[in-house]
Amino acid sequence: MNNPFSNERPIYLQIVDRIKVKIITKEYAAGDKLPSVREMASLMQVNPNTMQRAFSILESEGIVRSHRTSGRYVDLDEAKIAKLRKDLAREQTEAFLASMEQMGFTMEEILEELEKLRKEK
């Protein structure tokens, strides 16, 4: 029942990210039918308008395709999924770098630390 969203960022963007992750992790596969706006909104405990907004973005990015009568489907081929993965990796890495730089670490130090971790693994 707890609100899983942060209040600092628009919730529809957080939903978009969450659905993208579900696609990358293959929880949703290409061709899968998505729940209706109402069902999805109640599942995520958000306002249906927020859900509608999230779907519109996914549609405009070509990740979801909507059929006027039968609902919304995941519309992705391997190339699009690969691009989604890359985008997500980039986004997460940038966020990580930004927070490291804010703490005063240089790129060299960060890379050195990453190298060390790789060797340990």
């Binding site: 029942m1 707890n2 609100n3 909104a41 109640s42 405990q45 958000v46 306002n47 249906p48």
Partner: peptide
């Protein structure tokens, strides 16, 4: 939260 969900 339950009340909000009821409203929603």
């Amino acid at each position: 939260d339950h009340i909000l969900d009821t409203i929603l």
